[in-house]
Amino acid sequence: MAERTFYASLHRAWGDGRYVCVGLDPDNVLIPDCIVGTVERRIGEFCRTIVDATESVASAFKINSAFFEQYGVPGARLLEELIAYIKDRQPDRLVILDAKRGDIDNTNRYYARAVFDVLGADVVTVHPYMGYESLRPFLERADKGVIVMAANSTPGAEEFQGLMVGEPPRAMYEHIGRTVAENWNRAANCSVTAGATEPDKLARLRATVADMPILLLGLGAQGGDLDECLRVGRARRNFGLIPNSSRAILYASSGRDFADAATDAARSFNRRLSGA
């Protein structure tokens, strides 16, 4: 039976030519009008249809929990059902819960239980601010993945991520990358983030983390330079990137053909990633 750890699943997907990570950020305002019913029904049907349309080329699905949590109990139920749907259809596809957890160790113990054991996600995003000891409940789960927020290209990110720290001085995001790669990745289950709109930061992170995977954010609708990111961001021994695209795939069409359009967009993106 094939190993189903974070890295093993990624390497299998890359070896099969699947690279794109499809971001599931369902915005009710943007969901095509052909899907009718309550907000919860529209979101559920839309997400399941996108999964069906893109699963053949996707290495992973990244679900932003906020898009579901905003609806309270029905949203939490939708989130749990969506993860179960993906794992039932494609158990080899990674489910990344973009929840950006980060608290004291006792609280994180329950967050880890909720994310991994209740919801059934394979990977979670976390904040590094409180250090290794606080994140131990996530980091010690060798069967699961942990993506640590390092570099982002959103407005305001530079306020802290660009601070020069340590000796010799390096940017905070580089310090985070080095710390994760050299000290936190004891279970071989870690990754860090980089923004696709700033390839220079991606290049610095790649030099810092060696072959550790990097979740690449800001592609597609946010205008990241894919070709440059591939040039500077790929690892030496493997593909090395988890390139996420959300809106460019989800909303490739606002009509009844939205599923076919999503399939075409994901396939096109995957071809570019594979160099075909």
Rank of each mutant, 00 (worst) to 15 (best):
residue 100 K to N: 05
residue 90 Q to E: 12
residue 30 L to Q: 15
residue 67 F to Q: 13
residue 103 D to L: 02
residue 52 D to L: 07
residue 89 R to T: 11
residue 92 D to I: 05
residue 35 I to T: 00
residue 73 V to R: 14
residue 15 G to T: 03
residue 26 P to C: 02
residue 25 D to I: 13
residue 92 D to Y: 04
residue 44 G to D: 15
residue 75 G to R: 03
residue 39 V to F: 01
residue 101 R to Q: 05
residue 37 G to D: 06
residue 105 D to A: 13
residue 39 V to P: 00
residue 106 N to T: 13
residue 51 V to Y: 03
residue 71 Y to C: 03
residue 79 L to I: 09
residue 89 R to S: 13
residue 43 I to Q: 11
residue 42 R to Y: 03
residue 17 G to E: 01
residue 17 G to L: 05
residue 51 V to R: 05
residue 89 R to F: 12
residue 103 D to G: 04
residue 69 E to H: 09
residue 83 I to G: 08
residue 104 I to P: 01
residue 67 F to D: 12
residue 25 D to E: 11
residue 52 D to C: 07
residue 73 V to Y: 12
residue 24 L to Q: 10
residue 44 G to N: 13
residue 18 R to I: 08
residue 97 L to F: 01
residue 92 D to H: 09
residue 75 G to P: 00
residue 53 A to I: 09
residue 97 L to D: 00
residue 46 F to C: 07
residue 33 D to K: 05
residue 99 A to H: 05
residue 24 L to A: 10
residue 97 L to H: 00
residue 59 S to V: 11
residue 59 S to C: 14
residue 62 K to T: 05
residue 62 K to V: 05
residue 64 N to P: 07
residue 34 C to N: 01
residue 52 D to V: 07
residue 15 G to L: 02
residue 72 G to Q: 03
residue 49 T to N: 12
residue 37 G to Y: 05
residue 87 K to Y: 10
residue 77 R to S: 12
residue 96 I to R: 00
residue 77 R to I: 15
residue 44 G to W: 12
residue 76 A to Y: 11
residue 35 I to H: 00
residue 60 A to S: 10
residue 21 C to T: 14
residue 24 L to N: 09
